[in-house]
């Protein structure tokens, strides 16, 4: 039986932090899905070798500081407007990769107009959409995606559909638009889910490279602080309650990873 220090050698490395992640300690709460999604983006930038031609657009919400953690050029948008910034950027910098990072308040409430029209135009951008059914940053208020009956600081007796209406399935709505090239819903609550989500994020950027329309990855996420749960308890609650409302899997996939397609778009 070997000593543990005999195993900890560069040649035995199987998993390490992505190079494109900064060394800043994230401000997110323990167990927050943001951090996991950040690293999937960072790993994608590393693996596709596109870190130096990627421009991110950060939202208003906890993800506003994404630029402190993922090393690439960033723009910081007003609440909900990230797809408009991304549109302006991509139109003027078509040989760069442009992605937005948006929460459910940002994308599904205040920014519905911007996301709908960006996708409808088929902007060649990637949208990473974090859906945790709550406004995390402002203190756990009800979001358009909040589940029926779910208690939040602005719906303390639970979301009442007679008052607040229904949880919006914005991703399914966006998937209807002809400009959507790749639309998928994933999560990062366990290792299997993270592997799938990683594939989805990477694919979304590859789809952008093919310039065939908008690629959208929704990550059904937890907000353990806003939900007032432990991080692992939040993952369990999400599995039981969020997934039935927001089922995981691909919704639209117009990518055809044929060799000639890859050669046609020399972005990578």
């Amino acid at each position: 039986m070997s000593n543990i220090n005999d195993i900890i050698k560069p040649e035995n490395l199987v998993y390490k932090k992505a190079d494109a992640l900064s060394d800043n300690i994230m401000h997110y709460c323990p167990g927050c899905s943001h951090g996991t999604v950040h690293k999937l983006i960072a790993e994608t930038l590393d693996e596709l070798g596109i870190q130096d031609k990627t421009i991110g657009v950060s939202p208003v919400g906890c993800g506003v500081f994404a630029y402190n953690y993922i090393n690439c050029d960033w723009q910081q948008a007003a609440h909900g407007r990230a797809p408009a910034l991304a549109t302006g950027t991509k139109r003027l910098m078509p040989d760069h990769y442009v992605f937005t990072y948006q929460g459910d308040g940002d994308l599904a409430s205040i920014g519905t107009s911007e996301i709908m029209h960006a996708v409808n135009r088929g902007e060649n951008i990637t949208v990473i959409f974090i859906n945790n059914g709550i406004y995390g940053m402002t203190g756990g208020q009800m979001a358009p995606t909040t589940l029926v009956g779910m208690e939040t600081s602005s719906s303390p007796y639970g979301r009442d559909i007679s008052i607040h209406g229904y949880p919006i399935k914005i991703t399914e709505i966006l998937a209807q638009l002809p400009g959507a090239a790749y639309v998928t819903r994933q999560s990062v609550h366990n290792a299997t889910a993270v592997r799938k989500a990683k594939k989805a994020v990477k694919k979304a950027f590859e789809v952008q490279g093919k310039a065939i329309g908008t690629s959208i990855v929704e990550i059904v996420s937890t907000c353990s602080s806003g939900w007032k749960m432990t991080p692992t308890g939040a993952n369990e609650w999400m599995t039981e309650n969020m997934f039935p409302n927001y089922p995981l899997g691909d919704i639209v996939d117009k990518s055809k990873p044929k060799q000639e397609d890859l050669e046609q778009f020399p972005l990578k």
Partner: peptide, 26 residues
């Protein structure tokens, strides 16, 4: 020169924000 009719003035000014961020004359 890129020309795009935006979905609203809100979107238009934010497209400007994105383009201006890239050092472009927008």
């Amino acid at each position: 020169m890129v020309f795009l009719q935006a979905e609203s003035e809100v979107a238009a000014i934010n497209m400007i924000y994105g383009g201006a961020s890239c050092g472009k004359r927008v």
